[in-house]
């Protein structure tokens, strides 16, 4: 563990908590893409299958349980608890356009052709595109509430910090996970235009921000 990865995990946790608390306190999920949240729950489910089979550390196990619980809680709030505020007309991204290529690629490009490894690879590739329905929804509705922007900022920051972690681990312990690195770079690139807008607009207190 290094400070970059710890900061990344904390940023990820903050992002998930920001969204969950926003929905819970405003008792509404307007402007939130339920599809992206379902995809994130799927990412955690397919990635953390080794939760009971391999013990890495208490931190690792606790964080996996927390991420799984919070992501399913978010999906529950959107599709069950506050479903009448779910904006399905604007959450229309065709997730099959993400799932089909990701499934295909995880069968083609993986470290070993075993169910656990293919599911892990699937989760890595899926995570890099899981935010697309949310970004698409923001372009469609024309703007995002500032709290949603903070969510996206910390979510994008988490994988950017992981990239720094991978550089650090490569130079200190020769660790290199090609699939995770390539996918993580792609994922972070998707946030770049958002990062630019976030810094130039949201942090200047303009609250609402619209993606181009």
């Amino acid at each position: 563990m290094n400070i970059f990865r710890l900061a990344g995990d904390m940023s990820h946790l903050v992002a998930i908590l920001i969204l969950l608390l926003k929905i819970w306190r405003s008792r509404s999920c307007a402007g939130i893409s339920g599809k992206s949240q379902v995809l994130f729950a799927l990412v955690f489910t397919t990635r953390y299958l080794d939760l009971f089979t391999s013990f890495i550390s208490a931190y690792n196990t606790v964080m996996k349980v927390v991420f799984l619980a919070l992501s399913y809680a978010t999906v529950y709030l959107i599709y069950m608890r506050f479903r009448n505020s779910y904006d399905s007309e604007n959450d229309t991204f065709r997730v099959e356009f993400l799932l089909v290529p990701v499934i295909g690629l995880s069968f083609l490009e993986n470290y070993s052709f075993t169910p656990m490894e293919i599911l892990w690879t699937f989760s890595i590739f899926l995570e890099s595109v899981a935010i697309m329905p949310q970004l698409f929804m923001i372009t469609k509705t024309g703007e995002a509430e500032s709290i949603t922007n903070h969510y996206l900022f910390f979510l994008g920051l988490y994988r950017a910090l992981y990239i720094v972690n991978w550089v650090w681990r490569y130079h200190t312990e020769g660790f290199f996970d090609q699939i995770a690195v390539v996918s993580g770079v792609v994922q972070t690139i998707f946030y770049c235009d958002f990062f630019y807008l976030y810094v130039t607009r949201v942090l200047r207190g303009r609250g609402k921000m619209s993606l181009p």
């Binding site: 391999s54 890495i56 991420f67 490009e109 660790f175 996970d177 090609q178 995770a180």
Partner: peptide, 10 residues
């Protein structure tokens, strides 16, 4: 490509 070591990352 590289076989990834134990998955110690989240």
């Amino acid at each position: 490509c590289h076989r990834s070591r134990t998955k110690d990352e989240l």
